[in-house]
């Protein structure tokens, strides 16, 4: 899929660079994101996620590098191109501070900005705000407001949706509901580029993850295999008659078979552990695990 011609790619980036007053924020990024994929930029605060995404959205200028989003250079993207993308920015102070508008006012106003927009009420329903449609945006909870933000992002039927740290500050339940919404969008074929500093979020939603640190991509891959997780040495733990035992092995299946034979049927306290995404991630960003 990713090896196809550029026409199949939603996003192609090569050697993207951007500095703020001489301090590099993005230091040479390469990316190819095929259509239909949910791709996550995962990294700590200040890693360059937002700068990268806002360059792709056409909101920021780049210093150098080649960028194509839906086949168009975002710095030159005109109305016809903007009609094909949806943007959910990291900050949405307008939803809180321009407090006069209701959920429905917002949806109607943004629908008018797109040539082939969805029905405002239908989108409000889709993000689960039907019973809050007449509430002012400023009076919504954080999770509800972010769902309104997504409603406004998808109201123009985008082929590609940008989500910049969509669930920061959510409680676990709100985050789960939000993930379900994004998963539904992904199933409908929308390409999604998601930035996050939550590992579970990337693991839960993304087909592939790029770990970005100090403006560089450390590694790209499916969350299940990131950092060699799938093949790394596993730790096998069990409860032997002499107490708890643990063994590091590259062939855990063989050891488990062996143990099963030794214990007859069940092995008390048996567990096989691979490095978690968190361990892999913390190692990559250079933090003590």
């Amino acid at each position: 899929m990713s090896g196809g011609p550029a026409g199949d790619s939603a996003i192609v980036v090569s050697d993207l660079r951007k500095s703020y007053r001489g301090r590099p924020a993005v230091a040479g990024i390469d990316l190819v994101i095929p259509r239909g994929e949910v791709f996550s930029l995962l990294g700590p605060n200040g890693a360059g996620k937002t700068t990268t995404v806002e360059i792709l959205e056409g909101h920021r200028r780049r210093d150098s590098g080649d960028v194509r989003v839906l086949g168009v250079d975002p710095a030159l993207g005109r109305a016809a191109w903007k009609a094909r993308i949806g943007i959910v920015l990291q900050r949405s102070d307008d939803l809180t501070q321009a407090g006069a508008l209701t959920v429905r006012d917002w949806a109607r106003a943004m629908a008018a900005c797109f040539p082939n927009s969805r029905d405002p009420d239908e989108v409000i329903e889709l993000v689960g705000l039907a019973d809050r449609r007449n509430a002012r945006a400023a009076h919504l909870s954080g999770g509800q407001r972010r769902r309104l933000d997504v409603a406004l992002g998808i109201i123009g039927r985008p082929e590609l949706l940008f989500l910049d740290e969509p669930t920061t500050g959510f409680d676990p339940e709100a985050r789960r509901r939000f993930w379900d919404l994004i998963a539904d969008l992904a199933r409908s074929g929308t390409t999604i580029l998601l930035t996050t500093h939550y590992l579970e979020e990337a693991e839960h939603l993304a087909d592939r993850v790029a770990v970005i640190v100090d403006g560089r991509i450390m590694e790209v891959g499916p969350p299940q295999t990131l950092g060699g997780r799938a093949t790394a040495a596993a730790t096998v733990r069990w409860l032997s008659p002499d107490g708890p035992r643990s063994v590091q092995t590259c062939t855990p299946a063989a050891l488990v078979t062996d143990l099963a034979a030794r214990f007859g049927q069940d092995v008390p306290g048996l567990a096989v552990e691979r490095p978690s995404l968190e361990e892999v991630y913390l190692r990559m960003i250079g933090a003590p695990a």
Partner: peptide
């Protein structure tokens, strides 16, 4: 104020004339 709170940025990201 609309520039500060991102109203204008939100609009600039749409195909609105």
């Amino acid at each position: 104020i609309e520039r500060d709170i991102g109203t204008l940025k939100r609009l600039a990201g749409t195909p609105m004339p």
